[in-house]
C-alpha cells in the first residue's frame, strides 16, 4: 500500500463508494450470466458491467489519480470511449451469430425427415 492511503478523506470516500458501486453492478451483471435461463436473456446481462460498472470504476480511478498527482488525470476517458464504441459491435454481432445458428439448425432439422423436436428459429432452448 503506497498510493491510495495518502488520499484526503473526501476523495478516499468518493473513490471507495464509486468502486463499490461499480464492482457491485459488474457482479450483478455476471450473476445474470448464471441466473437467466436463455441465451437471448443472458446476452443483456454483461451490459451492466460494461456501462455503469466500467463507468463508475473509471471515474473512481480518475478522482483517485487526479488528487494523488495534483493534476488532472483523464486518460481513463480513452477506455470509456473505447468501450462505448466496441460493446455494441460485439453484442450485435453475437446476437446475429446466434440467430443465424438457430435458423441454420432449424433448417437442418426440418430437412431431416421425422425430426420430432419442435424448436422455432427465433426462440431458443433453455440453459441446460
Amino acid at each position: 500500500m503506497i498510493g491510495a492511503t495518502e488520499l484526503p478523506g473526501w476523495a478516499a470516500i468518493t473513490t471507495a463508494l464509486l468502486v463499490l458501486v461499480g464492482a457491485g453492478l459488474t457482479l450483478t451483471g455476471s450473476l445474470g450470466l448464471l441466473r437467466l435461463q436463455r441465451f437471448y436473456e443472458r446476452v443483456h446481462a454483461p451490459t451492466l458491467g460494461a456501462t455503469l460498472g466500467t463507468g463508475s470504476i473509471l471515474i473512481a480511478s480518475m478522482v483517485c489519480f487526479t488528487v494523488l498527482q495534483t493534476r488532472p488525470v483523464l486518460h481513463e476517458i480513452l477506455i470509456a470511449v473505447f468501450m462505448t464504441i466496441t460493446t455494441p459491435i460485439t453484442l450485435m454481432l453475437l446476437v446475429r451469430a446466434a440467430l443465424f445458428r438457430d435458423r441454420h439448425e432449424a433448417a437442418r432439422r426440418e430437412s431431416m425427415a421425422g425430426a420430432s423436436s419442435g424448436e422455432r428459429p427465433d426462440t431458443d432452448r433453455p440453459a441446460s
Partner: peptide, 27 residues
C-alpha cells in the same frame, strides 16, 4: 455463443479488476 459471451464478460471484468489494482497501488 454462450461461451463467447462468457469470454466477453470475462475480459471486461479482468480489465476492471486491473483498474482497482491500479487504484490500490497508486500506479
Amino acid at each position: 455463443q454462450d461461451r463467447v459471451l462468457g469470454l466477453d464478460a470475462l475480459y471486461v471484468n479482468a480489465m476492471l479488476l486491473l483498474l482497482t489494482f491500479g487504484i490500490r497501488s497508486g500506479s
